[in-house]
């Protein structure tokens, strides 16, 4: 069974990768299987996790209010009346319920999370006032003592390169924690850096908002400020693209690791065998199509 799984995984991965060469029958098979299997999997999960767990088992039970579960079931079934034109109007009741319930939950939650709290976080004081309390001073002293202790710890005999890197990382982390604690209790370089970050966020938010202000003409100071907004947007797009590249490369690496793993004899050398067969078939297809094209041209 494991070997069958390996061949299936390798086959479908290579089928999808074959699109990089050009559109071909292998890719079409992979694409259609993906859509079909996803829907099939969803239906099976839905059947067991919703119908059996949440409806059938409840109705079979002995709870006095078990029949209440039929109300959402009926509302759900009403959605299916869309398929019968004569009674399709009944589906509107179900949609009204879904939209009403969904909006009622989503609007306040989204407003709070994405607007109110985000606005609060943006409207921070631009300059930090140091916390002069005894607790803050104590926390700084503790972090300082810890950083000194970690830095002074002798390297064990025969320390490996990896262990040394880990120990040095520990020293760096302890030092960072001390600097962070100090930045709360007194105005330090790190505090200035944090304030600088706050100012960057402030300028970024407002300049981008200005850029999307279309009710006033962009000239003079408004133009300058909106141009700064464009710069922020460009940096965001660049960072987004960089992250996207990193993400895609990670996915490629993940598949390649699996392909490498499944090329071992215990899996019947699935990767090299399927790869060779696919290349041979694509080459055959190429020669065949070339022949046809030449016939057409003649």
């Amino acid at each position: 069974m494991e070997i069958f799984g390996a061949w299936l995984a390798v086959g479908l991965t290579l089928f999808m990768f074959s699109f990089l060469y050009k559109d071909n029958p292998f890719y079409k098979v992979g694409e259609n299987l993906y859509v079909g299997i996803t829907i099939g999997y969803f239906v099976i999960q839905l059947w067991y996790k919703t119908w059996i767990d949440k409806v059938w088992d409840v109705l079979k039970g002995e709870a006095h209010d078990r029949f209440l579960v039929l109300i959402p079931v009926v509302i759900g079934i009403l959605l299916l009346t869309r398929f019968v034109p004569k009674i399709s109007w009944m589906s509107r009741w179900a949609f009204a319920f879904v939209i009403g319930y969904g909006s009622g939950l989503a609007i306040p939650a989204t407003l709070t999370t994405s607007v109110v709290i985000q606005a609060q976080a943006t409207a921070k004081p631009l300059i930090t006032m140091p916390d002069k309390s005894e607790a803050a001073a104590k926390a700084t002293e503790g972090a300082k003592a810890n950083a000194e202790k970690v830095a002074a710890a002798p390297a064990p005999a025969g320390e490996t390169t990896e262990a040394k890197a880990k120990r040095e990382e520990g020293v760096r982390v302890a030092r960072y924690k001390y600097l962070n604690a100090r930045s709360q209790s007194e105005y330090s370089f790190l505090t200035a850096y944090k304030d600088f970050t706050t100012i960057v966020i402030f300028v970024g938010v407002f300049s981008v908002l200005f850029y999307f202000f279309f009710s006033i003409e962009h000239k003079g100071p408004v133009r300058v400020f909106s141009r700064i907004g464009i710069l922020f947007l460009m940096i965001y797009f660049g960072a987004s693209y960089g992250n996207t590249v990193m993400g895609r490369l990670s996915l490629l690496y993940g598949r390649i690791l699996d392909l490498k793993d499944y090329s071992r004899p215990m899996y019947g050398c699935a990767t090299p065998v399927i790869l060779v067969l696919m290349i041979a078939f694509l080459a055959f297809l190429h020669v065949k199509n070339k022949g046809k094209e030449e016939e057409h041209a003649a």
Partner: peptide, 24 residues
């Protein structure tokens, strides 16, 4: 995932979550 790090980082900055592990 790497694609979503930018949009999720705002929640860390706003204190709505603690830290964030980004991508591989």
């Amino acid at each position: 995932t790497a694609v979503n790090v930018g949009s999720m980082a705002q929640y860390v900055q706003a204190g709505q979550m603690v830290g964030l592990i980004g991508a591989m």
